[in-house]
Each structure stands twice: as structure tokens, then as C-alpha cells.
Nucleic acid binder design. Structure first.
Lengths: 134, 134
DNA sequence: TCATCTATATGACCTAGTCATATAATAGAC
DNA sequence: GTCTATTATATGACTAGGTCATATAGATGA
């Protein structure tokens, strides 16, 4: 949690009171790799094309990919062809696909949990507004 | 992310690949306090009554409440009456209510982001299954 | 050979959350 | 009275996820 509440009572400028979800971009990475093998820089580009995933730290991305490889979720090989320095091309493994499925399941249940929170929240404040008139 | 992938390719036993959301229980705390002032131990009890919020660390809860107070989201007073040691009773402030609203907004948008991920995920694997037959 | 672009990687750090444990008041056993 | 259990709050130490800054290195062109 950020500590600038006093400076932004309301919508917040320092980021968000709560917005990120643990491992969300990791899930996106695996999903992108399921569609097509790619190297880090490409993945970075693609993530930056969506509002949902943009702005991710390159260091974090590369570290995550190496971690995935250690865990057997992806495997990599060097692509020396083309211009510029060599690229480490990542390909998802069967384990990685399975893991993506599990991950999607958890994301689904998290989404449901958030839904239940919002229902409670909204039902509370709807009753309030009819009594207080806004 | 936990590092036990190899031991649970599939549904996962070490917890989850990704399930928690930053500040989720904080949002619940403020929501509970909006409904009724309470002390830490009560809040702990109430959180433990729902699958969505159970199992939270008491130390974390108390620390969070003190943090909220520092930030002006809640204020506290001692309740000396009744049995047992004194209780610090927390009451939400107008700032806290405003902050809860902002928080709910972010939770809503997070939920939508998760929905977009799941749509992409599902649409990909639906096409796959018709081709591969399961 | 120097700067620049592309691509990958590492070091230092910060914060949220966890685990274990301390503190303290009160109640009841005896 | 004092010992233990219960209720309630709090702190210390640590871990992990993520961020920020920066390093490395090959290819390209001035």
C-alpha cells in the first residue's frame, strides 16, 4: 500500500490503493508464449501494447523468463540470425501449458472473490444513498 | 510466485500460482468498519467467517489498523468495559470512506482486467480443443 | 573507434505480507 | 495470593514479489 492517502483523498494519483494482482503479468507471459514463441524484447513490446499490461520493468521480465526456464515452464534457444545481438527465444513447454491452466483457474476464482467484495460494497452503499439522498 | 511448480504441475498444493491481490483484505477491513465500528479481534473473527478472507495473520491485521490510523482512514479509542483486557475500538473516518470508494474503483477495474485476460485465454483454448479434440 | 540501437542481465532496494513470539489485563482454579 | 488460561494487542525478523538504476554485449553506422 502506498502512503500518500492524505494527498489524494479520493481517486488517488500515486498509483492505486489496490490494483495489482500477484503474478498477473506472469500469466500473460505464458499466454503470449502459448500463442507463439518469442524472445524477451518481443514480449516486452507486446505487453506494452495493452493498457492492462504496459509499463512492465524489463529486468523483471527477463528475470521471470529465466525463472520460468529453471522451473521447466519454458525452454529457450539462441537465435543468432537477423540484425542486432543474439536473441534468447522462449518456447512454452507442456508443463508450462498445464501451469497456465492452473493459473487461469486461480485468476478466475480471484475474479469471483473480487466480485463478491464489490457486491457487498455496492449493496451497502445503495441502501445508504436512498436513506441519505446522496 | 512460489517455486514448487515441478511438484504440482496442475492444480497446485503449495498455495496458488497467483491468487492474492494487493490490499484486498485492507479493502474488506474498511468495508467492515463502514458497517460497524469494531476492535481488531472482532474484525479478525469476521474475516475468518468468510472463505474469501479467512486465515489472515493477526499481526498483519493490527499493524494495518495502526497504519490506517496514522493515515487518517480510521480513528481509535479504548473500550475498557466488559471482560478481558481493554480493546482498541476502530471507527472509520470520512477520509476512510472516501478511500474505500477509490479502493472499490480499483478493485472493479482489476476485476475487468482479469476478465479480459480470461477471455483471451478461453478464446485461445476453445479454438485449440476443436482442432485437437481434447 | 566512437556513439547508438537492440537485447539481455544484474545489483540494490523497498514494501507487503508471514511467522513466531512478546506483552498485558483479566478470570478462574486451587 | 499465585498459577494458568483466555482475550486482545503488538513487535521483531524474515521472505518474496516487484521496482529502479545500471551493467553488459553484439551489431550498425558516422
Amino acid at each position: 500500500m502506498c502512503n500518500h492517502h492524505t494527498e489524494h483523498t479520493g481517486s488517488g494519483s500515486c498509483g492505486s490503493p489496490a490494483g495489482r494482482m500477484l503474478g498477473f503479468i506472469q500469466a500473460w507471459l505464458l499466454l503470449l508464449l502459448v500463442k507463439e514463441s518469442a524472445h524477451g524484447y518481443q514480449l516486452l513490446d507486446r505487453l506494452n501494447q495493452s493498457e492492462d499490461t504496459k509499463g512492465i520493468d524489463p529486468g523483471f521480465l527477463y528475470r521471470t523468463l529465466r525463472q520460468f526456464e529453471e522451473e521447466g515452464l519454458v525452454k529457450s534457444s539462441w537465435d543468432v540470425e537477423g540484425r542486432g545481438p543474439a536473441r534468447r527465444v522462449y518456447e512454452i513447454t507442456p508443463d508450462g501449458v498445464e501451469y497456465l491452466h492452473a493459473w487461469a483457474g486461480h485468476i478466475r476464482s480471484t475474479r469471483e472473490r473480487l466480485g463478491r467484495f464489490l457486491q457487498t460494497y455496492e449493496s451497502h452503499f445503495k441502501l445508504q444513498t436512498t436513506e441519505k439522498g446522496g
